[in-house]
Structure formats: structure tokens, C-alpha cells
């Protein structure tokens, strides 16, 4: 019994770590000017949220949180596919993916 419980980490630790990773993802979106790196920061934020979901799922002893993480992963995969296609299309017309240079809406 002691060996089983000694491996359990309090849920609070996971939540704090999730908050730190989320804040770092926000920092990436705020500080980086490259569209691909901004996308990666969004992925980091999604993963931080997923970590909180799984931690709460264990804490509440409920599988709904884990199923929701599954859906978040699916949506993230779809988002990455469309987003990277958009980046490729923008790079074709502008020859750059620096978002500071993308201030006009003309193609």
C-alpha cells in the first residue's frame, strides 16, 4: 500500500506545471514573429490544457476528462493541417512567413 501511494503526485503540482507551460505558450505567441513558431506555441498551450484535463480526470476519478483530451488532440491535428496549408499558401504569394509583413489582405 505504501509503495502504491508513494508514486502519487498531488494534483496541484500538475495544475501548476500546466499553468507554467500555458504561460510559456502565451509568451511564444506574444514574442515570436514567425508564423510556424506561433503555431508551435499554440500547440504548447493546447498540451498544457490537456495536462490539466488529465490531472483533473484522475483527481475526480472520472474518464470524461481523458476522452475530452482525445477530442482536443483530434481538433489540434485538424487545426495544424489547415494552418500549415495556410502558411504554405501565404509563403507562395508573399515569400515570407513573418507576420509583421502580413498587414495587407490582398493575395
Amino acid at each position: 500500500m505504501f509503495e502504491e501511494t508513494s508514486f502519487l503526485v498531488p494534483t496541484n503540482y500538475y495544475i501548476i506545471l500546466s499553468a507554467i507551460l500555458f504561460a510559456l505558450g502565451v509568451g511564444g505567441v506574444l514574442l515570436r514573429r514567425n508564423a510556424i513558431l506561433i503555431f508551435m506555441s499554440v500547440e504548447l498551450m493546447l498540451n498544457a490544457a490537456n495536462l490539466a484535463f488529465v490531472a483533473f480526470a484522475r483527481s475526480m476519478f472520472n474518464l470524461d476528462g481523458q476522452v475530452f483530451v482525445f477530442f482536443v488532440m483530434t481538433v489540434a491535428a485538424a487545426e495544424v493541417a489547415v494552418g500549415l496549408a495556410l502558411i504554405v499558401a501565404i509563403f507562395r504569394s508573399k515569400k515570407s512567413i513573418d507576420i509583421d509583413e502580413l498587414h495587407s489582405m490582398e493575395g
Binding site: 502519487l8 498531488p10 494534483t11 483527481s59 476519478f61
Partner: peptide, 9 residues
Amino acid sequence: LPSVAPVAA
């Protein structure tokens, strides 16, 4: 929050 989950493997 339940502080530590009562979940074993």
C-alpha cells in the same frame, strides 16, 4: 479538489 487521487493502477 480531492488533494491526492485514490487511484492505483
